[in-house]
């Protein structure tokens, strides 16, 4: 039977855990705000690039001169799955959901007889996938120690992809990441990266009836633009992931704080009962002793 002192130390330790989770929740909330702003700030560029790609893609569609990134390699055998997760944990089911989605994708690709390769971005995804699919892994990119995700990080990923694609290491690339729907809801999503899917429904710039002049030429511009488009898509995904991560962490820490509160209440009740029982026993002993005299 636990003594009163045991109860007190238990309660003290739960209280300090609660303080930590509470602090983490507030830090996550502040970082979430910043991550959302970053995602917002990246939008004008990505919309503009998407609009231009959409414009150009329709005009070179089907022609042999179209860049390889748009046309694809002509095969559909080797699929690369890029799994973007967070660097850190304590965020509830955030990473697990992304990994689960990736697994579903890998299983369905393999069922169709495709060769699957995995590129992990972020430590947690690698940790979870290496147990089952370590033989499929072809690379890993980690942003440990990076404070704010930016173009430098997405460029690292897109350069690697373009390099591998040019070397003929894969035919199709998919990106699995978490779409930031709201603070409490993040949805693991699969997006095809290569061959580039011409964006639909984006506002293409209105030329006002005039004819566009391209310098040096449409194909040359598209050739230069597609890697940037890829880049901006990856950056967008990474930023959404970051925002989603902080949202998930906020939720998880809020839960943990509440659980700690419940636990403290329960322990305090038990402790008080125990204390009362002890007092009662003492009193009975004294009364019994007094009567005996």
């Amino acid at each position: 039977m636990a003594s009163l002192k045991d109860f007190r130390t238990r309660i003290a330790s739960v209280k300090s855990t609660q303080k930590i989770t509470k602090a983490m929740q507030m830090v996550a909330a502040a970082k979430l705000k910043r991550a959302q702003e970053a995602a917002e700030a990246a939008r004008p560029y990505s919309e503009k690039v998407a609009g231009t790609v959409a414009n150009l893609a329709t005009s070179v569609q089907g022609s042999d001169a179209a860049p390889k990134l748009l046309r694809g390699s002509g095969n559909d055998q080797v699929h690369l799955v890029v799994v973007a997760t967070s660097e850190r944990g304590l965020c509830g089911g955030f990473n697990t959901n992304i990994v689960k989605k990736s697994r579903e994708l890998i299983v369905s690709l393999q069922a169709r007889g495709k060769t699957v390769k995995i590129l992990t971005v972020g430590k947690k995804g690698r940790d979870q996938l290496k147990r089952v699919y370590s033989s499929l892994s072809v690379g890993h990119i980690e942003f440990a120690g990076v404070r704010t995700l930016g173009a430098a990080q997405s460029a690292q990923v897109s350069h690697k992809l373009v390099e591998m694609f040019d070397a003929g290491e894969f035919d199709v690339a998919h990106l699995v990441f978490s779409r930031f729907k709201s603070v409490i809801s993040q949805i693991a999503t699969v997006q095809q990266l290569i061959p580039v899917v011409a964006p639909e429904g984006v506002a293409t710039s209105d030329t006002g009836g005039g004819v566009y002049t391209y310098e040096p030429g449409e194909e040359a511009i598209l050739e230069a633009l597609l890697p940037r488009y890829l880049d901006s898509q990856i950056l967008g995904a990474l930023l959404e992931n970051a925002a989603g991560f902080y949202g998930a962490q906020m939720g998880a820490m809020d839960n943990a704080t509440r659980n700690a509160g419940d636990l403290i209440k329960k322990l305090t009740l038990q402790m008080n009962r125990k204390r009362q029982a002890m007092i009662t026993t003492e009193l009975t002993e004294i009364i019994a002793g007094a009567q005996a005299v």
Partner: peptide
């Protein structure tokens, strides 16, 4: 600074895209 040389843009320039 365009790849094919520097160019200035004033208002009502013709639609144009370059690297």
């Amino acid at each position: 600074p365009g790849v094919d040389g520097q160019f200035g843009v004033l208002s009502q320039h013709a639609p144009f895209m370059t690297v």
